[in-house]
């Protein structure tokens, strides 16, 4: 079986268009993961067991179970309880929730790396807790963890094909749809692989530059 270049050429524009959905899912998922992860990280630092215990349990549980099932859960179970969400949004929520448990760990590491004296200085000035977090701790905790967050952006990007199972027509879903019409899997799947490879290499390069910039600033 030969790789047919004209078929591949015909597919390429379709797949590149589908990659926009992939990017949309990635960016949407990352937005959720960034916000939810920070919330979870802060909740886990609460002094009250009623707050930090469930937050920790949620993080551990979601982190230890497959994203694929979480996608199914959100897609099939939530509508049974009247929660109607568009398919792509289901995917974005699942990705975001799953990766929030990873970003929460990253944030935690960043927060713990801020010297204790910074807290004491904030308290000595009798700043309200909100201002200490917002203006003293987080501005120091976040920049160093940007590269680690970036790595999860890449990781999440590579998990977006899972959304094909609930019918999101991102890259893989589109490739499979095309393949099922022509019965040719070789070209679509190879192209998807190559597109992923290209994206990964480019983002890795960009991230490295960001890392260098950040390192230069501090």
């Amino acid at each position: 079986m030969m790789f047919q270049l004209d078929y591949a050429a015909e597919l390429l524009p379709i797949l590149l268009k589908a990659s926009l959905i992939t990017i949309e899912a990635t960016l949407g998922g990352m937005a959720v993961a960034l916000v939810l992860g920070l919330v979870l990280a802060l909740l886990r630092r609460s002094r009250h067991a009623v707050i930090h215990t469930p937050a920790s349990a949620l993080v551990e549980f979601v982190r230890s179970t497959p994203l694929l099932i979480q996608i199914f859960f959100i897609y099939y179970v939530l509508p049974l309880y009247g929660v109607r969400i568009p398919t792509l949004a289901c995917g974005i929520i699942a990705l975001g929730l799953h990766y929030a448990t990873y970003t929460a760990e990253v944030y935690r590491a960043g927060i713990e790396a801020v010297p204790h004296g910074q807290w004491e200085a904030g308290r000595a000035l009798s700043l309200p807790i909100y201002r200490i977090w917002r203006h003293i701790i987080l501005p120091q905790a976040l920049p160093p963890v940007v590269p680690a967050l970036g790595n999860y952006l890449i990781a999440m990007f590579k998990e977006t094909p899972l959304l094909a199972v609930i019918g999101v027509h991102e890259l893989l879903g589109t490739a499979l749809r095309e393949a099922s019409q022509t019965y040719r899997y070789y070209e679509p799947l190879t192209l998807v692989g190559l597109i992923f490879l290209a994206f990964s290499l480019v983002t890795a390069l960009v991230l490295r530059r960001v890392e260098v910039r950040l390192a230069g600033r501090s």
């Binding site: 899997y185 190879t190 692989g193 992923f196 490879l197």
Partner: peptide, 14 residues
């Protein structure tokens, strides 16, 4: 650099 699921389908179908 490529996705696990894509690799899996590639190996399975191609």
């Amino acid at each position: 650099g490529t996705s696990l699921l894509v690799q899996l389908f590639f190996m399975f179908y191609v």
